[in-house]
Amino acid sequence: MLADAHAHLLPRDYPADAPACFPRMEPVDGESARLLLFGAMRFKARDAFFDAERRIEEMAASGVDFEVLSPMPPLLRYDLPAGDGLTLARHVNEFTATLCASDPARFAGLGMVPLQDPEVAAAELAAVRDAGLRGVEIASNVLGVSIGDERFLPFFAEAERLGLAVFVHAMPSPTDRLPPSTMGTYVVGLEGALAAASLIAGGTAAKCPDLRLSFSHAAGGFGLMVPRAQYFWSGTWNEEPPVPERALAHDDGPSPLDYARRFYYDSAVFDARALRYLVDLMGADRLLVGSDFPAMPREEPAGRTLRTIGLPEAELNDILWDNAFRFLGMAAPRH
Rank of each mutant, 00 (worst) to 15 (best):
Y265H: 06
D292P: 08
S181D: 09
A16P: 00
E315A: 15
L2P: 08
C208F: 03
E137D: 00
L311E: 11
P73Q: 13
L36D: 10
R304T: 05
L86D: 11
R54Y: 02
P242T: 05
L275P: 08
A159M: 07
E158M: 09
V168E: 12
M25C: 10
E26S: 09
G144Y: 11
F222I: 02
L190D: 04
F50T: 08
H169N: 12
E239L: 13
V136R: 05
R151F: 01
G111W: 07
V188Q: 14
N323S: 06
A274F: 01
V145C: 06
C208I: 05
G163K: 08
A131W: 00
F232L: 15
D84S: 11
F270G: 00
D103L: 02
R286G: 04
G235K: 08
A218M: 13
A89P: 02
T305M: 14
D51G: 04
D271S: 14
R54A: 15
V145Y: 00
E150I: 07
L115A: 03
A157H: 12
M183T: 12
E245F: 07
G220W: 03
A295E: 14
T96S: 04
A157D: 09
A48S: 15
R12C: 00
E67H: 09
R228M: 08
F152G: 04
F325L: 12
D266T: 06
V226C: 11
A61M: 05
T96I: 09
R34W: 02
L275Y: 04
L257Y: 01
P241I: 11
F325C: 11
L86G: 03
F263N: 02
F222K: 04
R246V: 01
L75F: 15
S255I: 04
R77Q: 14
A33L: 06
A126E: 15
M112V: 12
G192Q: 10
A284S: 15
A165V: 12
F107E: 06
L211S: 02
R42D: 06
A284H: 12
P104G: 03
G253S: 09
L164N: 05
A123H: 09
A127G: 05
D130P: 00
P19A: 10
H91A: 08
P11A: 01
P297C: 04
M25W: 03
Y277A: 10
E53N: 13
V92M: 03
V145K: 14
